[in-house]
Design a protein around this nucleic acid. Structure first.
Lengths: 204, 204
DNA sequence: CACAAAAACAGAATTGACTCAATTTTAGAA
DNA sequence: TTCTAAAATTGAGTCAATTCTGTTTTTGTG
C-alpha cells in the first residue's frame, strides 16, 4: 500500500501547491481559476478536488507552511528572551509580523482569514484555528518564561494575558491586511503603543 | 423627483431585506439563493443587483441595523457608567455581547465578518470597518469618562487602551461565533478574566 | 502473469452569483 | 393629454467553483 501510488500522490500534491502558489501571487486568489491551476499542475480539475475539499483548502496548505515557519522562528525568542519585558514582547511579535508577508500577499491573507471564519469546520478552518492557538501558546510560553526569570509579576494571570496580547496583535494584523496602503512599520508601532500599557502593569 | 418612484424604491428595499433576513435565518446565508430572495421579494434578480452590489451587501444592511442598535444601547452606559472600572467595562461590553445574537445567527455573523475581510473596499466592507471604529470610539469614550471621574489614572494612554479592549473583545467574539456550541455566558466570563488584568493596572 | 477490488483520475454536467442588452415605467415639459 | 428622456426593471446569458459518473491505474493475490 505504498510505493508508486504514494510517490505519485506526494508529487501531485506538490505540483498543485506550487502551481496554486504561483497563480495566487500573479493573478490573486480570486483571479486564479481552478482550471488554470489544474492545467499548470498537469492534473485534471477533478483530481484537485480529490486532494483538496475546495479552493480555500489549497490556500490553506500554503498559509500553514508560512505560519509554521513563523512559529519556528519564534521558538528561539521564547527560549532566550531579551532581559526586558517590553523588548521581549516586541521581539517575538516583531518576528511574527516581519515574517508575515514573506510568501503571502495581503490579498492571500484576507482570503485565508475570510475562509477560516466562513468555514470554521473545513480542514483549513480547523487548521487555522489550531495555528492561532499555537501562536497564543507561544506567547503564553514567553510570559511564563519571563515570570520564571522574575521579570513579570508572579501574581499575573499569564494565560489570560497571553491571549489578550495575541488577540490584540491579531486584530491589528487583520486591520493591517485590509488596508493595502498600511505599512509593516506602522503596525509594529501601533502594537508597541498598546502593549506599553500592559508592560507597565505587569513588570516587577 | 420624489413621490411614486421614491415610495416604490423604499418599498422594494424593505421587501428585499425582509425576504433576505427570513431566508438567511431559515436556510443560512449560503443556502439562500438570490433567485429565491428575488421571488420572495417579488422583484427580479436584476433588480436586487440594482439595489445591492452583491449578496454580501444585503447581509451587510442587516448587520448594520443590528450594530447600530447596539451602539445606541451603549450610549447610556457611557453617559452614566457604574462607579467602578471593572463594572463599567463589564456593563458596556456585556451590552454588546448580549445584543449580538438578537437578529443575527452565528452563521450570519461568520459570513458578515468573512465578507468584510474578503472585500474591505466593497460598500459593506467599508461600513463594517466604520462600525468597528464606532464601537472602539465608544469604548474610548467610556475610558475618557472614567478618567474624568477620577476612576482611571490620568496618565494612561486612553485611546490605545480603548483599542486594546475592543480588539480583544472582538477577537473573542470571532472565536465565539466560529464555535457553534460556545455560550454567551462563557464568552463574557473569558473577556472579564482578561480585562481584570487591565482593570488592576489602570485603576487609581 | 492474470485478475478482481480498490483507489484515483478525467472532464462533462450542474449550480448559483452576477452581468447586460432590451423593455417597461416614471417624471416633467409642452 | 401626449411625448421624450431618464431611471428602473427584467430575465436570459456568462462564468467559475464544485459535483458526479464512467474510465483508467495500481495493488495484492492466486
Amino acid at each position: 500500500m505504498s510505493g508508486l501510488r504514494a510517490r505519485q500522490k506526494a508529487d501531485r500534491h506538490r505540483r498543485i501547491i506550487e502551481a496554486a502558489a504561483a497563480l495566487f501571487r500573479d493573478a490573486g486568489y480570486e483571479g486564479a481559476k481552478i482550471e488554470t491551476i489544474a492545467a499548470q499542475a498537469e492534473v485534471s480539475v477533478g483530481t484537485i478536488y480529490n486532494y483538496y475539499q475546495n479552493k480555500g483548502d489549497i490556500l490553506g496548505a500554503i498559509v500553514s507552511m508560512e505560519v509554521n515557519e513563523v512559529l519556528n522562528a519564534g521558538r528561539g525568542v521564547v527560549a532566550n528572551p531579551p532581559a526586558n519585558v517590553g523588548d521581549a514582547l516586541d521581539t517575538l511579535l516583531g518576528i511574527y509580523i516581519e515574517h508575515s508577508l514573506h510568501y503571502l500577499s495581503k490579498e492571500m491573507w484576507r482570503q485565508a482569514m475570510a475562509i477560516s471564519t466562513q468555514l470554521p469546520d473545513s480542514p483549513f478552518g480547523q487548521a487555522y484555528t489550531a495555528l492561532d492557538r499555537a501562536l497564543t501558546e507561544q506567547i503564553r510560553g514567553l510570559i511564563a518564561r519571563l515570570q520564571a526569570l522574575g521579570l513579570v509579576r508572579r501574581d499575573i494571570d499569564g494565560p489570560a494575558l497571553g491571549e489578550l496580547i495575541f488577540n490584540n496583535m491579531n486584530m491589528m494584523f487583520i486591520e493591517f491586511v485590509k488596508r493595502e496602503e498600511a505599512r509593516l512599520a506602522e503596525l509594529r508601532t501601533a502594537i508597541r503603543r498598546q502593549n506599553r500599557i500592559l508592560v507597565a502593569a505587569i513588570g516587577v
